[in-house]
Simulated scan of single mutants.
Amino acid sequence: MEIAVCRAADVALLDECIGSPGAVSSHARRFARQGEGGGTYLVAWIDGRPVGHAEVIWDGCAAPEVRAALPGCPELNGLGVWPPELRSRGIGGALIRRAEELAREYGRTVLGLGVAADNPRAADLYARLGYRRLTDYVDRWSYEDRDGVIRECVDPCTFLTKELPSGSLDVKRT
């Protein structure tokens, strides 16, 4: 498996292999934010096929509760592994470790992420990797579906954080 920063040529293949709702793909939005310097979009590859993704949003979670609790904390967002039969094989963990390494390279000492209340499997992974509860919040986001209808999404979540060790990085690149 390889974890790499998303390139422009990757977006169409991500759309093909790991679809997203909406008229404008979430992959295109994430790649655009990366181009503007607001994030870094990571893609996991196996045999030339994208099998997972995650984005580090450098200015953090948009939820006011999170911003108030820990201003400036970068957020790992949109972690996903596809197809589902590849889950629990280390892909998500590898994406998280690469995001942590990247945050340390950028001089950050903490990384956060949100987990939906209805996703105990992800919460267990994050706990095993050392993430701890910071605050509860409601994640609100929207997208325009393929029929042009704006869909509003509301998810009760918990924001988790992990202090990143400083000093030399002893992280194996995957």
Score class of each variant (00 low, 15 high):
residue 26 S to W: 14
residue 29 R to L: 15
residue 31 F to S: 04
residue 33 R to Q: 14
residue 33 R to Y: 06
residue 34 Q to P: 03
residue 35 G to W: 00
residue 35 G to A: 06
residue 39 G to Y: 02
residue 42 L to V: 05
residue 42 L to I: 04
residue 43 V to N: 09
residue 44 A to Q: 05
residue 45 W to V: 03
residue 45 W to I: 00
residue 46 I to T: 08
residue 46 I to H: 13
residue 46 I to D: 11
residue 47 D to E: 15
residue 48 G to H: 10
residue 53 H to M: 12
residue 55 E to M: 14
residue 58 W to M: 10
residue 59 D to M: 10
residue 59 D to S: 15
residue 63 A to N: 02
residue 64 P to Y: 04
residue 66 V to H: 03
residue 66 V to G: 06
residue 67 R to M: 12
residue 68 A to L: 13
residue 70 L to Q: 12
residue 71 P to Y: 03
residue 72 G to L: 10
residue 72 G to W: 04
residue 72 G to C: 12
residue 75 E to R: 06
residue 75 E to S: 13
residue 76 L to H: 06
residue 77 N to Y: 09
residue 78 G to L: 02
residue 80 G to F: 07
residue 82 W to K: 02
residue 83 P to M: 10
residue 86 L to F: 09
residue 87 R to Q: 15
residue 87 R to W: 03
residue 87 R to C: 08
residue 90 G to M: 03
residue 91 I to S: 09
residue 92 G to A: 15
residue 92 G to L: 02
residue 93 G to T: 14
residue 93 G to S: 15
residue 93 G to Q: 14
residue 95 L to W: 01
residue 96 I to F: 04
residue 98 R to C: 11
residue 99 A to P: 05
residue 101 E to F: 05
residue 101 E to T: 14
residue 102 L to Y: 02
residue 103 A to E: 05
residue 104 R to V: 15
residue 104 R to F: 04
residue 108 R to N: 08
residue 109 T to S: 14
residue 110 V to R: 11
residue 111 L to N: 01
residue 112 G to Q: 07
residue 112 G to I: 09
